[in-house]
């Protein structure tokens, strides 16, 4: 058992500050455990959100020593002995209280995405997909909607004015999953460019760095979308497609 110093943000939109607490931490604990102990022993009114304590619900997002992380997946032995550990709410979103923020922005963005538009079924009335057709998009389905990527993305975080016209990394992979879907008939590149504002992303990869599900958001989602967008402008590709009578499904 060791005593650690936790510097936790306390406050709301009206004002607040970091407060230092000395908390007992046992071996094997994660930051969320220590926050719970703090809540139980010294700060009963500390607001924090959590559900699964298993890195799967995406509720306990916070910024630990300035890095967006899941509190339940951040082990205490990551820190040096005696190191002060700061815990702040995810700063890109409006605060409710202490460590809890309002992430409604993301739900609004989700609503704006046009859903899957199924191609017509095959002659026998069924749909068929092969494993290799969906392997690639499975990765995007691992998303737990912790919104750490949205929090760290500097377009959302530092340029408030762009938020309206920017979907953010979580929804770029959503769009990539639909755009690459073997049964989807919609061409999503105009949406990706205009409504989702992919041009604002400068592929600096912070979203990928913080994703607890290790989704290659930038390399496998955003960049392929940028390339698909470039296709629609590329005269060579357009000519080739016309020449080969290639449909959107590329086969």
């Amino acid at each position: 058992m060791a005593t650690v110093t936790m510097r936790v943000f306390r406050g709301d939109a009206g004002g607040g500050s970091f407060k230092d607490y000395r908390v007992e931490a046992d071996e094997g604990m994660v930051v969320l455990d220590v926050i719970h102990r703090l809540q139980a022993t010294q700060a009963n009114d500390l607001a924090c959100r959590w559900n699964c304590k298993a890195g799967k619900c995406g509720s306990c997002s916070a910024e630990v020593n300035g890095k967006p992380r899941l509190m339940c997946m951040t082990r205490m032995n990551l820190f040096r002995e005696g190191e002060i550990i700061s815990v702040a709410p995810i700063r890109a979103f409006p605060i409710i209280r202490d460590l809890v923020t309002n992430v409604a922005y993301n739900y609004e963005k989700a609503k704006a995405i046009p859903p899957l538009r199924l191609k017509p079924p095959e002659a026998d009335g069924t749909y068929r997909m092969m494993q290799e057709d969906i392997d690639r998009i499975q990765e995007f389905h691992k998303c737990i909607e912790c919104f750490l990527c949205q929090d760290v993305c500097h377009v959302i975080r530092d340029h408030e004015a762009h938020k309206k016209a920017f979907a953010g990394p979580r929804f770029f992979i959503k769009l990539a999953g639909l755009e690459m879907h073997p049964l989807d008939a919609a061409d999503r590149t105009p949406f990706v460019r205009r409504e989702a504002g992919i041009g604002l992303c400068n592929i600096t990869k912070c979203c990928t760095e913080v994703c607890p599900e290790h989704i290659h958001i930038t390399d496998n989602g955003i960049i392929p979308l940028k390339e698909r967008m470039a296709d629609s402008f590329d005269p060579i590709v357009r000519l080739l497609r016309r020449f080969r009578g290639m449909r959107k499904d590329g086969a």
Binding site: F9, G11, A13, N65, S86, A88, P94, N102
Partner: peptide
């Protein structure tokens, strides 16, 4: 004690970052 409507503004943290690593 909420002095502003909850969820109206970002956390009042001024620092440009809170990272402690190099």
């Amino acid at each position: 004690m909420i002095r502003q409507p909850a969820g109206a503004a970002r956390p009042p943290i001024a620092a440009a970052h809170l990272r402690t690593d190099a």
